[in-house]
Amino acid sequence: MDTTGTFWMPPANSTIASEVDALFYFILYASIIIFALVVGLSAYFAIKYKRRDGVEAINSKGLDHNVKLEIFWTVVPLILVMIVFVWGFQTYMKINVVPKDAYEIKVTGQKWFWSFDYPEGGNSVNEIVVPVNKPIKLLMDSKDVVHSFFVPEFRVKMDVLPNRYSITWFEATQVGEYNLFCTEFCGKGHSEMVGKVKVVSEEEFEKWSEDLAFSGEGMTLKDFGAKLYVSKACVTCHKIDGTNSTGPPWNNLFGKEEHLSDGTSVIVDENYIRESILNPMAKITAGYQAVMPTFQGILKDKQIDALIAYIKSLQEDKSLIQDESSQEDESLKNE
């Protein structure tokens, strides 16, 4: 199994990857031969026939065409490219035709994260976990602009469109963790719309599926929130060290008065945070673009509570977290 890749290509870790690579290298070697010929001959002629002083022109009668030669260099490349065409098309069909027994995962792209819905009902963000040696079908669509799903190690790429489903599939052949890139330009966070593909053994996958339903039992609400902050990709746009990113930083946010883009202002409290998660366009903080997607349907109530608890824990000035008791009530109510 290939784990390091070659000089040109990344490791070939899906069933079709080595087929793609074979064609890649066929074209590469053919190209090197043609290129060596082109450059070698021009360099050779340029040196051999360099103009010498006093020798103006060489009699070159009859050197302006040669039908046989011209037919030769038309037909040979034509045959070569036709081989490449047929070969490329054959593999392309394999990339496009999904095996019948494939395990289907729904992929949603939006600015700027990926979310994955599993047939068992679980959901994950920016991390897709799949079993090894099993064909995986991806049913994809976008909530906003065009994205594109690309895993170099699998040689798989497919655009993710806002108005229709697109489909692709792969079968990973090697356990490991791979980058998943968005390759269609989608705005500010385009280069951060990078997820992970985690290929695991069948047993591990089953265990992971069970974990997906995990709702923070045995963890404090705050710690669960901290976990979600990373796993649901809040971290992409909201920092916790005070730096401005796509969205406002979360530290010392709770209890603060935020100025909104419509000129009004609001105190950051539990309801404001909840609204901002579920209906982000309702109130936009001044100085930031209105780009946050809704997490309606992605986050459950319990998870929103956990995130609120986490944001509160990031407020250093504890006096701003007033009315401790009513807050407890609220989180109880939600449960």
Partner: peptide, 24 residues
């Protein structure tokens, strides 16, 4: 020299399966 490289690498991109990997 340069155009030959440019042209020949175009062949990679015209080949459907290889283009899937190299696109964008």
């Amino acid at each position: 020299f340069l155009f030959s490289i440019g042209g020949l690498t175009g062949i990679f991109l015209g080949a459907l399966s290889v283009d899937i990997h190299l696109h964008d």
